[in-house]
Design a protein around this nucleic acid. Structure first.
Length: 476
DNA sequence: CCTGGAGTTGTCCTA
DNA sequence: TTAGGACAACTCCAG
């Protein structure tokens, strides 16, 4: 009996068939057993949040469909499951695409050692980054800490990213009945179904992700450079969750956007550099595994953060009394997403005006975002807090009134998420506390009742933050 | 080792 | 009304 060899493809954050290097390798080597393992054992406090799990559920459903129902799913510790699976199925080996969270790197290292010790084939591939972190280093061999040289000197002068590869066309899927094959058994959905509304606005899975890439590049990229700053415009790609789960690879996005037929010279470079930021965040996380919890600038250890649960709750719920901040926080809660410009505004407000520790913001984003990603989330918060390697200068403090007037002048975005202010004239929309009583009354706004008073004084809190910063510097 | 240029996204004050 | 400079030096990076 001439039995074809069997290999396992372990899906993780590469939930797609096309441009999947590990799957391609697996498919040419014989039969493929596609598996997914819900690992709630190794992540510690960095396990995915509730919203992220719902996305994962839907993404796995889509993947399983394109695998004709052949995906086998497991719950538990991959360190135990994979060797067991290999001995039970007689598989020759296992392939996967690399993940870069410190806990996944450590887990995968153990699995690799264990399997190679038993002479079992085991190989990992790059399916999630344009450049591996260890390939982008300064001339002295140390990692970059500043974005611009990282991207221009590092990435752009390095070897070109892999050209996307086709999905395996002659894949033979194993029909071994092992593990579970009902995604529902992973219990990724919440018991109380709060998720219906959040996920109304998202099409999940490889097919949807690819359509979105094309739609963005054809219809929204031309005005990306400026349009991306306006939350009511449709000029951002909203690809982040698809990239996080690997429904589409950065290589596919990079080369599709760069295709000569689109010729988007102005928007293109800016958009590609955003993919560069994604690379930079992953590089920082790889070389500084404490990025999610500790300020990269150690002098921030003495920074006088304020602890105030009430202020934090007001921020989370979008009841700060600053309309664009509240719009952003409510957008996050209602849709699992927040426009990038608004992420900066609410972030600056949290760490500078409320002066709450950036960890609070990171944790809340982690729980609420459909695109929650350890590298991007951590690097973003360190950037806005001014404590990162390449961070906004501390004195650069966003004023939510000015930001609102500049980037949501007509109030379309703010009024969508803060409807109690929908009848307020735009002149007062971003600073309702300055509106004359009669104007408020005509707009059915009663400060302190229908909409909160501002929870901080912008001027005073700004000055206090600057003072705290200069005190910190003086003490170091 | 030294040197010089440069650094995602802002705000406020002054002339 | 608007444009330019101050803010705060510091670290990073390449030559």
């Amino acid at each position: 009996m001439n039995k074809k060899p069997l290999h396992i493809h372990w899906f993780r954050q590469d939930l797609r068939l096309s441009d999947n290097p590990a799957l391609a390798k697996c498919a040419v080597n014989g039969d493929v057993l596609p598996i997914f393992i819900l690992d709630d054992c190794n992540a510690g406090s960095q396990e995915p949040g509730a919203v992220s799990r719902v996305w994962l559920h839907h993404s796995l459903l889509a993947l399983n469909k394109s695998l004709n129902g052949a995906l086998r799913v497991f719950k538990g510790n991959p360190i135990e499951i994979i060797p067991k699976l290999i001995s039970e199925t007689g598989a020759n080996g296992v392939y996967w695409n690399r993940c870069y969270e410190p806990w996944q790197i450590e887990r995968d290292r153990i699995i690799k050692l264990t399997l190679r010790d038993k002479n079992i084939e085991c190989e990992s591939f790059n399916g999630s980054l344009l450049w591996e972190p260890w390939d982008i280093l300064k001339k002295d061999g140390t990692p970059y800490k500043v974005f611009t040289p990282f991207y221009r000197r590092g990435c752009l002068s390095a070897k070109e990213p892999r050209i996307p590869i086709s999905p395996p066309d002659d894949i033979t899927l194993s029909n071994k009945k092992i593990g579970m094959n009902d995604i529902n058994d992973l219990e990724l959905l919440p018991n109380l179904r709060w998720d219906q509304e959040v996920f109304e606005g998202w099409d999940i899975g490889e097919k949807a992700a690819n359509l979105k890439v094309i739609d963005f590049i054809e219809n929204r990229l031309h005005d990306y450079k400026d349009g991306r700053n306006f939350p009511s415009k449709k000029n951002v790609s909203r690809l982040s969750p698809h990239l996080h789960f690997g429904e589409v690879s950065p290589n596919q996005v990079w080369y599709t956007a760069s295709h000569p037929k689109y010729m988007n010279s102005t928007g293109l470079d800016h958009f590609l550099s955003e993919l560069g930021w994604r690379e930079f965040s992953h590089s920082l996380l790889y070389f500084f595994p404490n990025l999610p919890t500790e300020s990269l600038q150690t002098r921030f250890e003495t920074f006088p953060w304020i602890e105030d649960l009430d202020l934090l709750v007001r921020w989370k719920e979008g009841n700060t009394g600053f309309p664009i901040v509240d719009a952003g926080m409510r957008e996050l809660w209602r849709t699992g997403y927040m426009h990038n410009r608004v992420r900066m505004i609410v972030g600056s407000f949290l760490v500078k005006n409320l002066r709450l520790h950036w960890n609070n913001g990171l944790d809340w984003f982690w729980d609420c975002l459909v695109d929650a990603d350890l590298a991007n989330n951590s690097a973003g918060w360190q950037w806005i807090a001014g404590c990162g390697a390449d961070a906004a200068p501390y004195f650069r403090i966003f004023n939510p009134v000015l930001q609102g007037e500049k980037f949501d002048k007509d109030g379309i975005y703010t009024k969508q998420f803060v409807p109690e202010l929908k009848d307020l004239p735009n002149k007062y929309l971003h600073c309702p506390w300055t509106a004359p009583e009669a104007v408020l009354k005509a707009a059915n706004v009663c400060l302190g009742k229908s909409y909160p008073h501002p929870i901080v004084d912008l001027k005073q809190s700004r000055e206090a933050a600057l003072k705290a910063f200069s005190d910190m510097k003086a003490s170091n």
